[in-house]
């Protein structure tokens, strides 16, 4: 049982890293807490639903689609909202309220079109593209992939697929930040925003890119949400935001790669609590978040950013 909880915790943890990383990228660059983060995740889940119900194909195809749609949406939103905000007296406080308003709008519109009922996707549909390829190239019988065996225990295939996709996405974020020009500038803005402005870095371009990528990553995480949490509703966003915040703070705010660690720690805690203390599992993200904020405000890895 312990092995199962630990392995499941790591699989979920990798996925949780993907859930949080976009929020952290946006915060690190813009010093803005995107309270609509969870709602973008929820929309990603609805893109997966749409791909399955309208096109009838593997929901994995929703991954690039969700990323591109929300990358563009992020760029657009950035140019509409942020310049006005940063001209105001108290951008940090007002941004919280602004993005809260945005989250309300997203939730309301989704409810108007999709209703409040719980939506789920049959988990065997995820990854059918792999079995199709396997059948085409190597022969064998078509059919749903069974559980994946790790350390002699079976885990649902979607968990493994989500974890692997998350690893790939985090790897790509690493390449972006450390191997691309825009990424290098992004890191410069994250560490010293004022100085970056003074040295003539186009902070707006860097921030817009980070915002777009952040939303794109959230939407990609959303694609897997129906499989990881069983179902989604339009109201899923608010909880997802708090959970993401807990993961991000656990890793270290303003350090996107720290989120990978935060996610895994969170995932393992989540699974251990689910296994041994299930009636208290709901409390975990909130209590963990408060404890971390108070006891180790810079996160598990990280620099000091937040004490008044």
């Amino acid at each position: 049982m312990l092995t199962y909880a630990l392995v499941a915790g790591v699989l979920f943890g990798l996925y949780f890293s993907l859930v949080g990383i976009g929020l952290n990228l946006v915060f690190g660059v813009m010093r803005i807490v995107n309270l609509a983060h969870g709602d973008v995740l929820m929309l990603g889940a609805f893109i997966a639903l749409g791909v399955v119900t309208l096109a009838g194909i593997d929901p994995l195809f929703a991954v690039p689609l969700a990323f591109i749609v929300f990358l563009l949406a992020g760029l657009l939103l950035y140019w509409v909202l942020v310049p006005r905000l940063q001209g105001s007296v108290n951008p940090e406080m007002l941004s919280i309220i602004l993005f809260f308003g945005l989250s309300q709008v997203i939730e309301a519109i989704t409810t108007i079109f999709a209703g409040t009922s719980e939506r789920s996707i049959q988990s065997r549909l995820l990854g059918t593209v792999f079995s199709t390829i396997k059948v085409k190239w190597f022969g064998g019988k078509p059919g749903p992939a069974g559980p994946v065996q790790i350390f002699g225990q079976g885990f649902p295939a979607p968990w493994v697929i989500a974890a692997v996709t998350s690893l790939v996405a985090i790897g790509l974020v690493y390449l972006y930040l450390y191997r691309s020009r825009l990424g290098t500038l992004t890191r410069a803005v994250m560490s010293r925003r004022d100085e970056a402005l003074a040295t003539g870095i186009d902070v707006d371009r860097v921030s817009a890119a980070a915002f777009g990528i952040g939303l794109g990553l959230a939407a990609v995480a959303g694609v897997f949400a129906p499989f990881m949490f069983g179902s989604v509703t339009p109201a899923f966003g608010a909880d997802a935001t708090v959970t993401s915040f807990a993961i991000v703070v656990l890793g270290s705010l303003g350090n996107p790669l720290g989120t990978a660690l935060g996610g895994v720690v969170y995932g393992v805690c989540y699974m251990l609590v689910q296994t041994y203390l299930s009636s208290w599992a709901d409390l975990l993200p909130y209590v963990l978040l408060i404890l971390i904020l108070l006891l180790r405000p810079s996160g598990l890895l990280g620099r000091q950013v937040r004490v008044a």
């Binding site: 108290n90 945005l102 939730e107």
Partner: peptide, 20 residues
């Protein structure tokens, strides 16, 4: 949900146009 929509838009408008 219609109220929530109008409310969300109101909040956004408030922050953008009448922050004080």
């Amino acid at each position: 949900q219609y109220f929530q929509l109008i409310y969300g838009l109101l909040i956004m408008g408030l922050v953008l146009f009448l922050p004080a």
